[in-house]
Nucleic acid binder design. Structure first.
Length: 621
RNA sequence: GCCCCGGUAGCUCAGCCUGGUAGAGCACUGGCUUGGUAAGCCAUGGGCCGCGGGUUCAAAGCCCGCCCGGGGCUCCA
């Protein structure tokens, strides 16, 4: 395919008479289009629809750069001596028109197969005239950079912003009184203008390194981190906790592949509806993409399931380690935004919208419980609800029910049209030290994918129907949860308070410091006792002063530090330095164990995956 | 992707502007020290100063190119 691309002040054409055996219907009148990008297009032998689509994509990019408002596709046979047959050529031209429409370009198209009178006025800048040449090879090479439609559409998306209150008010953001809701205001401004110059680096990055949680891995692709023992432990506990909660709520846990064939028909559509860039892996003559959510695997399972209305609602759950999104390199930050991340993802198949609404309420409750269980309070999170205008008009009460459940004013974004596959989504957002927001928990009502994947259930009448699908991550990405915990801890440092992890997540919960080496035996004994009641304990047996060991325990944010010496040996009562209160407290071993059991309550426990003796423990960095 | 900043010991960084052949603290190793609630003392070892080219008698430093990393912008379903 050869295209002469011209940036024109105007183009005028007038169909005179049909010239080819294949021609389109056309009016014999003069057409004039101003301020346009004109594509004089010759379709050659071997060209296919993909080439046409690619050409339109390139043109669209050019138009965006130069702010050219409209496109004219003009069949022009005189650029090649190797023309395709008229039938084939028309097919490719139609693909171009469809593509332009799909991309919501203002596009005009001259009729194929006519002898036309043509006059044009080309602009005088250096980029105004260009020859483009496409062969099947160009598409094969370039297609790795395929940009999903949704990414392009997103840029055109128009939103209206409101605050919804638990009392049922709808207030345009500009008119809302944010007194007492300062965090929501920061969040709303962040979402709406999405730009803010901040120079400092986010505090959680140096914390994640210093606390030996995670670190960048220069030998991998950026945004793929390495996890040290303490980080792995914390992450693993969070993973187990979310999974446990989802299963309590009736989730059915499955596991699915991490890579999928890009040419699989059902996946193809979803790839385009979902604004994310993929990692692509060529294997022999096929291309696979790494999953960027659990959706694919679960939908493919659901498609094969024998589902009756009696089974619904049904929840399918997977915790993806990992999901991959090839975010642009400049967007990656610490644990906040990664290219490989761990995402709990629970889908619900529902028979109709009413059932979907009921399920969504349960899942909101689940998400609230999970966030609270992890250690986030209501003040730490701001809720956003986004929906189409249609959905709002027919389900207003439901939306306010969600707001009431959350119990605080909520940021609402309304779209005039449905651009994505869902009609409503909500998220919890965390506002960090840079006053930037990151989404954690989320749920969506998907009205499109059941059809796209051929997922059906049988209703009372024995007919097949498409279910509504909900997509929920009760915690959001696990890495991002840790980011939020670290950012929250940093806020404490800023207030001159002692930062710490929730006790159930602290790698070492109790550090025992023998006053001198003579008490090491006793310390080990004490450690054994505490371990028997599921407490993570270690012993600082290094040849250092007590002060030094305490300082090190403090910088590790250890919640309970026990100094053990003559006094404790005699009395049998421990001196415990309690981080939360900053006080020294006397208590017996059993009381200490009980305090920790109480703090962990119903949440998972894992043993400390490190040498128990500090003298045997290497530093990771 | 664009803009900015950076790459010197395991880590954090100084030195670079104004060229003269490599520094500190912490960590590591050895020794002294048996210490009671946030850093005990001494000593030792450790460096292709990101890579390649250029200028110069001489380059960690100046110039050019490249690679890698980070931050900001944009984006964030």
């Amino acid at each position: 395919m050869k295209i002469v691309q011209l940036h024109v002040d105007y183009v005028e054409y007038e169909p005179v008479r049909p010239e080819s055996s294949v021609y389109e219907e056309a009016e014999r009148k003069k057409h004039r289009i101003e301020e346009a990008l004109l594509l004089l297009t010759s379709v050659e032998k071997g060209d296919d629809r993909r080439l046409g689509e690619k050409a339109v994509e390139d043109a669209a990019e050019f138009m965006k750069e130069l702010k050219i408002p409209r496109l004219v596709i003009y069949p022009y046979a005189h650029l090649s001596t190797n023309l395709a047959s008229p039938g084939e050529a028309l097919e490719v031209l139609k693909a171009m028109r469809e593509k332009a429409e799909e991309m919501r370009l203002e596009a005009y198209s001259a009729p194929f197969g006519w002898n036309k009178k043509l006059s044009i006025s080309v602009k005088g800048h250096p980029l105004a005239e260009q020859l483009r040449s496409y062969t099947p090879e160009t598409v094969r090479e370039k297609s790795e950079e395929e940009v999903p439609q949704a990414l392009l559409m997103e840029e055109k998306l128009e939103s209206y912003w409101y605050i919804l209150t638990p009392d049922g008010e709808v207030v345009p953001v500009e008119q809302f009184d944010f007194k007492g809701h300062e965090n929501l205001e920061v969040f709303a401004r962040y979402e709406m203008q999405k730009s803010r110059a901040v120079l400092e680096q986010p505090p959680h990055v140096s914390l994640m390194k210093r606390l030996e949680i995670a670190d960048y891995e220069p030998a991998s692709d950026p945004g793929n981190l390495r996890w040290y023992a303490k980080g792995r432990l914390i992450k693993s506990l969070l993973e187990q906790y979310v999974t446990q909660k989802v299963i309590e709520y009736g989730g059915i846990e499955v596991e699915t592949p991490i890579m999928y064939d890009m040419s699989h028909p059902a996946l193809k559509k979803y790839l385009h509806k979902f604004p994310a860039r993929q990692y692509v892996i060529p294997v022999e003559d096929k291309k696979y993409f790494l999953r960027f959510a659990a959706c694919f695997g679960q939908f493919l399972i659901a498609k094969d399931m024998q589902l009756s209305y009696k089974h619904l609602p049904i929840w399918l759950y997977e915790l993806t380690r990992y999901s991959f999104r090839r975010e642009k390199s400049g967007e990656l930050v610490g644990l906040k935004r990664l290219r490989a991340f761990t995402m709990p993802d629970v889908h619900a198949l529902c028979r109709d919208i009413e059932q979907a609404k009921e399920e969504m309420k349960k899942r909101l409750r689940l998400s609230m419980e999970v966030m609270e269980g992890i250690g986030f309070g209501r003040d730490d999170l701001e809720m956003a609800i986004r929906f189409t205008k249609d959905f709002y008009e027919s389900h207003r009460d439901f939306i306010f029910e969600l707001v009431r459940m959350f119990g605080k004013p909520v940021l609402a974004e309304m779209w005039n049209e449905r651009y994505f596959y869902f009609v409503l989504k909500w998220e919890f957002n965390f506002v960090d030290n840079q006053r930037k927001a990151a989404a954690l928990s989320t749920d969506q009502i998907d009205v499109e994918n059941a059809r796209a994947y051929g997922i059906t259930y049988v209703n009372e009448k024995g007919e097949k129907e498409y279910p509504i699908i909900l997509h929920c991550s009760p915690s959001g990405a696990i890495e991002r949860v840790i980011y939020a915990l670290l950012e929250k801890a940093y806020m404490k440092i800023e207030k001159n308070e002692k930062p710490m992890f929730p006790i159930w997540l602290s790698p070492t919960q109790v550090r025992i410091i023998p006053v001198k080496s003579d008490y090491l035996e006793d310390a080990l004994e004490l450690m054994k006792k505490l371990e028997e009641s599921d407490v993570r304990v270690d012993v600082d047996d290094r040849d250092e002063t007590v002060e030094r060991k305490i300082r090190d325990a403090e910088t590790e944010w250890i919640p309970y530090v026990v100094v053990y010496g003559e006094r404790e040996k005699k009395s049998g009562v421990l001196s415990v330095r309690v981080r939360e209160t900053g006080k020294l407290e006397k208590m017996r071993v059993e009381e200490l164990a009980e305090k920790i059991r109480e703090a962990v309550k119903n949440r998972p426990f894992k043993k400390l995956p490190l040498p128990k003796l500090l003298s045997r423990r290497p530093s990771f960095r």
